[in-house]
Amino acid sequence: MASITPADQPPVARRAPRLSKQLRRDLQAYLFLAPWLFSLLAFTAYPMIASFYFSLTKYSILNPPRWIGVDNFVTMFTNDPLYWKAVANTAYYTFVSVPLSIVVALGLALLLNQRARGIGIYRTIYYLPSLMPVVASTLLWLVLLDPRLGLVNIGLQAIGLPKLGWLSSADWSKPGIILMSLWTGTGSAMLIFLAGLKDVPSSLLEAAMIDGANGWQRLRHVTIPLLTPTIFFNLIMSIIASFQVFGPAYVAGDGGARQAGPLNSLLMYMLLIYRNAFRFFEMGYASALALVMFIVLVALTLAVVRSSDSWVHYEVGRR
């Protein structure tokens, strides 16, 4: 001990504060982060792990969970006709509404990207329905889509088309809520597209114009390629949202009391989970349902991400 001179080694008294300085910094930062760390553990990590466990149990809320292995998954795939109904309905809804909503949102954004007076008013009008609570907008559309005397059908009749059954027909109930979702659900994507369009450098469009490209060609070969990162983002967001569609199906399908819409045509996957969890209190089975949806959703998202290499262009100089 005595052989260590102050020159060889800094005295302990000077080293200690240096160490504890980093430690103090860490401690202080983690003090700020404490709520979030708690949230990550209690409301994300724990529930994720627990849902794996619950999915392997029979858990009718009043009794403790009982381990049953993969029985829930076997029941789901082989012995629950409503499961496949819900899968089919959700797939229908997703594969129709997602591309439609992207096209509509992009179309609206292109309209709003013109130089015209009062463009802000139009933007407000197009965005306004997105603000409505889903219960209010669905109730409104129940009135609009009334098969006998709703405004939509009277309009169809006026232009010589047949009236449709909409929410009271098994064939037309999903198109009904898709139509509704185009009215209520495209506002955000539209604004995001609009911001993307503002980023398209006008020099490129002018160059294309000088080369003789017409409006469609400029859209197809300049604007859209530059917009692909935004399309990619909106695509993923709307896939996630449409997989988990609940409100319109619940309100229009009468709360899933007996049937969700005619012949269960509005029985969306989320509604099936809701029924099993909060009506029948089958928490184990509901967890298994949720887990399968989660896995499918992650797989689908990854597939879209994987595919993005071939169609999403990140230009130099863009964020």
Binding site: F43, T44, Y46, P47, M48, A50, S51, F54, I61, I236, I240, F243, Q244, M270, I273, A277, M283, A286, S287, A290, L291, M293, F294, L297, V298, T301
Partner: peptide, 13 residues
């Protein structure tokens, strides 16, 4: 990016 669905039931419980 985590879909809320996977945490729903354990959170409820």
């Amino acid at each position: 990016m985590l879909p809320g669905i996977v945490t729903l039931i354990p959170t409820y419980l």
